[in-house]
Amino acid sequence: MDTTTLNALSEPNRLQIVELLREGPLTVGEISERLQIRQPQVSKHLRVLSDAGIVKVHADANRRIYQLRPEPFIQLNAWLESYRRIWEERFDSLDDYLKEMQEKEEK
């Protein structure tokens, strides 16, 4: 698992920006206004998010519009699913073993 995504998200303001962008693409000014964070700060956070591949930017006339990229989230999900699978397998084994315990007790 590449921890770049996790590191980029583990800062409250950046996380808020990502949550906001889930609703749709926005400009720096719009983000700044919605979150009440100063524009230079927002730009700084967007740069980190962009370096981590979490957001991408495109120009529309003289506006720069930021939006989320799905790839890092798909990777995160796959990573989480691998943990889930590990535990699911263990619980299959637990279930089997409980049957044995139960039989032992009944004897």
């Binding site: 998200l9 996380l15 990502v18 949550e19 889930r22 989230f73 798909i74 995160l76 989480l80």
Partner: peptide, 16 residues
Amino acid sequence: VYDGWSDALDTIVKKY
């Protein structure tokens, strides 16, 4: 961060 991160991750993951 600790709590917020995992909450946000869930919803983000769901969306994508």
